[in-house]
Amino acid sequence: MNWQLLPQFAITGLLNGGPIALIALGIVLIFKSSEIFNFAQGQMLLIGTMATWWFASPEGMGLPLPLAILAALGVSILLGLAIERFTLRPMTGQPLLSIILMTLALSQFLQGLTILIFGTVQRNFPVIFEVTNPYKITLPFQYNGNPIIVILKQNLVWSFIIAMVCVLVLWVFFQYTNTGLAMRATAEDHETAQSVGIRINRVFGISWAIAGIIANIGGILIATASGLDLSLPVVVLAAFPAVLLGGLESIPGAVVGGLVIGLAQGLVGLPNNDFFLGPEMAQAVRNSAEIVPYIILLVVLLFRPDGLFGQKRIERI
């Protein structure tokens, strides 16, 4: 076993977990306020990122990047609001399963819409972070007398930082603003929220708008690392287990879930398990980055059915 590479893979994985955590947070946000599991989050991400590309690229509007991102965020907000207003509000009072299936249909619809508008070509997403100059960090311990150096791409580090800043901003928003309070109250009980005068339709609209913003930022972060094409929504396959792992309605849970999933995906990539697994098995493990989140999820849910940070139902007897 080559322990020398362990820190490199672990840290890379952890940093990769940042954007996953952010995307997971978008799903948690909507689930918290309306108990709807939003399967269309990946497609919201795709549309937002495509819009960013279109506003920034010379083939589209050719705006400077910061302006393009702002414009795209505007599109994402409108998309979120439109989804809430035109697809979910008419479904109010319908069984939850129907609404959830509707978000599944919505994901297909949005995917198709993206193809119609932007085509199927792979796009060159504008470069945001310097590519050529990775950070080199020497860790303060040694292995077999060799210093351990971790090399991190700039976009990896900055994506992580941006994702975590977004999480922090959202947390402050929830904890300390009136709108945040209204959203938390609505998340607990719609009827009681209405009875204290909270306009819950507006709260739902705000949740979807914020989910749109988060999806857009998450999409941009992912696209800077892996490019932009129609397969972008696949990243939510890593975010879903992160959401469930953390507990469906927990913000810290989404963050921890995202990081754990990132870490796990990083670690299975470690190229030297041959020692005790044998070469074929080791290869299989390395190729399992997509399913490893679900394996972890399965194990966690066996012991903690509400996820790691899921709300404990308070019941008075």
């Binding site: 009136n178 309070l181 209204a182 938390r184 109250a185 607990e188 009980d189 009681t192 929220a193 204290v196 005068g197 909270i198 709300q311 308070i314």
Partner: peptide
Amino acid sequence: FQHLTTEENLRTGALV
């Protein structure tokens, strides 16, 4: 609102 604190519960009343 069971998971909010006492004061947060009270403040929800004043959101209007």
